[in-house]
Design a protein around this nucleic acid. Structure first.
Lengths: 122, 122
DNA sequence: TTAATATATGAACATACATTCATATGAAAA
DNA sequence: TTTTCATATGAATGTATGTTCATATATTAA
């Protein structure tokens, strides 16, 4: 197996090839998908929407009410979540009900919340 | 206990107070901290840096090499991670070595990666 | 002390994106 | 069919932020 080639060296011992060669990064596409996914959680409004439907389905009107947001704002954010396939939705008459598509989401949020709460103690 | 009051009603049945009242959201401060945290992961460059030091400490030069980035870019992003207290660092001579501060991070990343990989199968 | 080197930082620029307003769509009721 | 109502969407605007260039800081070597 060929050793990786690097373009820039700042000193004799540095960079530390032995350490660097052991690093296992997700590939470019995976990094892209990961950061795209985290972007979804990286906004107050979207995060509140996501948390709202962690355990129940809600219609757009419910979200506007619960979160005190413009209907337009909610719909725009839901569109983003739909495009990312993070949520599913169903129509029932005039209302459209949104819910989460995946249980990983709940796990990610709860782990992150644990992180936050631990920080608070310090 | 008083029932929550809502300002906007789109129909007779809607909003669905019974469902809405059961929703348990993190409080405002927690939402803020959560989304701030996700922002850290929501950028390709920062995410690659974070993944690089998941299991080892690396100096700035190592990161420049490994990730093929400007030294300035790396330092700026490390500053953001430092301010967020997501990383710790130690000086050894001219080099400064960075590592992660918390094991939650690894868990969040691996859960998220599992989510991504599951999506790929579909 | 002076020079060299690893890292940090400030300013400028370009880009991404969240919100709002106005309006469109599409289902149900009249 | 026409109206009403819940939701979606396009355009415009302001703001946040990632990268780069130039330069500062701090440690080591000479």
């Amino acid at each position: 197996m060929k050793e990786k080639e690097f373009k820039f060296v700042c000193g004799e011992k540095c960079p530390h090839y032995q350490k660097i060669n052991k690093v296992k990064l997700p590939n470019t596409e995976q990094i892209e998908k990961l950061s795209d996914m985290f972007k979804l959680f990286a906004d107050n409004t979207r995060l509140r929407i996501i948390c709202s439907i962690l355990n129940t389905e809600l219609c757009v009107c419910d979200l506007c009410e619960l979160l005190d947001l413009n209907q337009s704002t909610v719909s725009h954010q839901l569109q983003i979540l739909r495009n990312a396939k993070l949520v599913k939705y169903r129509r029932d008459g005039k209302q459209i009900y949104y819910s989460l598509k995946d249980e990983h989401i709940e796990q990610i949020i709860s782990t992150s919340l644990a992180h936050i709460l631990e920080e608070e103690e310090k």
